[in-house]
């Protein structure tokens, strides 16, 4: 119990340090939110100065940090200069979409990776293993955005929706039809996103399983005539689980960040476009909220991974 409290304290400290560092980093980068406005003929110098003062951008770093911190304490999560609204208002309607997309694709990616990785390792060098490898190499060489565009091309030819999370006539649909509509809209983005995270998972699953197959006790079990599914489930997978659990924990961080680019291309109403825009704009509080979210997820993921590691091998937990 006290260890959990310790981890929680560490997590809190982590987020505080992270937020401070983000402020420092943003300070180092030249310009601020209004830099780009200089070329906008509608924005006079006086107006830009007024707005800078209004949003406290002229104040020293620590004051700006404290203002942000107090805004977080009030539950607003910071204030977006671009939208002139608390960050929470912007994040709430979008976060669920991002989590839905990322969660579904994470699930899909792990299922495919486990199947292909295990099957590939079982017949290492076989046709399935080799074609998986070629696919992995291809996926790694294709930029994510291009993959998304190819996904839309597929949609064009299959009558699947080209983007968005709901159809235009969504409001008039019955409950069942709405569910189907939502699922249809998920197909392409989830597949594309799963494909982008697939290479890392497949390769690690394959390596771990191959290594486990090679372990003395598995070979002994095989020698005793245990084979097939039982061998895999009872002997190989537990032995292979280690790096996979670690990866699983890390992939948690990707729940918020993994789909940033894809969302924009797919018209998925998630956090992606918002966070990316805040990065180019230097709308710091929005970006910070995104980064803290990612870090928190990552931290939770790692916590779960450490817990799972102890669970499979109680002795490893110190």
């Amino acid at each position: 119990m006290s260890r959990l409290v310790g981890r929680l304290a560490q997590g809190a400290l982590l987020l505080v340090v992270l937020s401070m560092l983000v402020f420092v980093f943003a300070e180092l980068a030249p310009g601020d939110f209004f830099t780009g406005a200089v070329l906008d003929p509608r924005m006079s110098e006086e107006l830009i100065e007024t707005l800078r003062l209004q949003y406290g951008l002229e104040q020293p770093l620590h004051i700006r940090y404290l203002r942000w911190a107090s805004s977080v304490a009030r539950g607003e999560g910071g204030f977006s200069i671009a939208y002139r609204r608390p960050v929470v208002d912007l994040f709430l309607p979008r976060a669920a979409h991002t989590l839905m997309l990322a969660g579904a694709s994470m699930l899909l990616a792990w299922i495919i990776a486990l199947v292909l990785g295990i099957a590939g390792a079982y017949r290492a060098g076989g046709w399935l293993d080799r074609s998986t490898l070629i696919a992995v190499a291809a996926l790694l060489a294709i930029p994510e955005l291009l993959l998304a565009l190819l996904g839309i091309l597929v949609a064009v030819n299959t009558r699947l929706p080209l983007g968005g999370a709901t159809s235009l006539d969504y409001a008039s649909l019955s409950l069942g039809a709405r569910l189907i509509d939502r699922i249809e809209h998920l197909v392409i983005p989830v597949t594309v996103l799963a494909l982008t995270s697939l290479p890392v998972l497949v390769r690690h699953v394959r390596t771990s399983v191959l290594e486990a197959l090679d372990a003395p006790f598995v070979r002994a079990a095989r020698g005793h005539g245990i084979s097939g599914r039982r061998l895999m489930l009872a002997y190989v997978l537990p032995a292979a689980a280690n790096p996979l659990i670690t990866l699983f924990g890390i992939s948690f961080g990707g729940l918020l960040s993994g789909s940033l680019v894809i969302e924009g291309a797919m018209g998925w109403p998630g956090l992606g476009p918002l966070v990316l825009e805040s990065m180019t704009n230097q709308d710091l509080h929005v970006l910070l909220a995104g980064i803290l979210g990612v870090c928190a997820f990552l931290w939770v993921g790692n916590l779960i991974a450490d817990g799972l590691l102890v669970l499979i091998d109680p002795r490893s937990g110190d």
Binding site: E277, N281, G290
Partner: peptide
């Protein structure tokens, strides 16, 4: 340019270079 079309170029750096960098 200061507006926001997330254009074409994007590269995934994934776990390597931080989230912020993904694109």
């Amino acid at each position: 340019d200061n507006c926001f079309r997330m254009a074409a170029r994007s590269a995934r750096v994934g776990c390597l270079l931080s989230v912020a960098w993904i694109c």
